[in-house]
């Protein structure tokens, strides 16, 4: 279960980010405080997600979609508001982040799952089904640097979904991987919904959102523009996009 109440996140953008003592000292003696521009990445977001619901998040680049995911996963502590999240979170993170190219597939499974907070015993238990789902058994003792990006994506998806999360966070990662694996992944996400896993899903692919989500959130400049059932939000969003391109 996820509950956000009046959540706001503020980024402080330093104009010409010079992060050195020198610049700091010079500015200090000049009496010049570094110019800071405050950007509200999220503003007063309130939202409730029950167990088993899956929320699609749409909006333009920079609308705050990824920031919202970061707030839910606990990476960012919001400047204001209350965040309540119950359950184990598995983020489908970008491929480069949790993997090490020098290590083998097997070693990376252990590394990645421990990043998600699992103990060795738990990983031992899941190991076979992760390899099974990724269909990479023949390559499991090969260093990851010899994998294709599609293979890495498969491994990443398999780990994040085999670990039985309560909340799954997907940030535009289904874009990689071949069509067949994409289908397989979609099936698995739908299966999760039946099992009661809560899903947060950021994508620019409206078809995917429609087929996978029970609710859609449209963010614009960090605020909620619309929140509702997929059909109506997506059609409004589509109109806006057309209006935007005509203007």
């Amino acid at each position: 279960m996820i509950s956000l109440q009046g959540v706001s996140v503020k980024y402080r953008l330093i104009k010409e980010k010079k992060r050195s003592f020198q610049a700091h000292l010079i500015n200090y003696f000049k009496g010049k405080r570094i110019q800071i521009q405050v950007l509200w990445a999220l503003r007063d977001i309130s939202l409730n997600l029950n167990k088993g619901e899956s929320l699609g998040i749409i909006g333009h680049n920079g609308a705050g979609k990824s920031t919202l995911l970061k707030v839910v996963s606990g990476v960012i502590k919001p400047a204001g508001g209350i965040v309540k999240v119950n359950g184990k979170i598995a983020p489908l993170i970008e491929l480069s982040a949790g993997f090490d190219p020098e290590l083998t597939g097997r070693e990376n499974i252990y590394l990645n799952a421990s990043i998600l907070g699992f103990s060795r015993k738990e990983i031992d238990k899941k190991y076979d089904s992760v390899v099974e789902f990724s269909e990479l058994r023949d390559f499991i003792d090969t260093p990851l640097k010899n994998y294709s990006s599609g293979m890495i994506a498969r491994l990443g998806f398999s780990i994040a979904t085999e670990v039985d999360p309560d909340i799954l966070i997907i940030d535009e990662v289904l874009a990689v991987g071949d069509a067949w694996f994409k289908e397989k992944s979609k099936e698995r996400i739908l299966e999760f919904r039946k099992k009661g896993v809560t899903t947060l899903f950021v994508s620019h692919n409206m078809e995917e959102i429609k087929s996978l989500c029970s609710k859609v959130l449209w963010l614009e400049h960090g605020k909620i523009k619309m929140l509702g059932d997929p059909e109506s939000v997506i059609s409004e969003y589509g109109k806006e996009v057309i209006r935007f391109s005509e203007a």
């Binding site: 970061k70 996963s73 606990g74 990476v75 979170i89 983020p91 993170i93 970008e94 480069s96 982040a97 949790g98 990043i115 998600l116 907070g117």
Partner: peptide, 8 residues
């Protein structure tokens, strides 16, 4: 990359 993506 990791610190940015997930809580630990």
């Amino acid at each position: 990359d990791l610190i940015n993506k997930l809580y630990l």
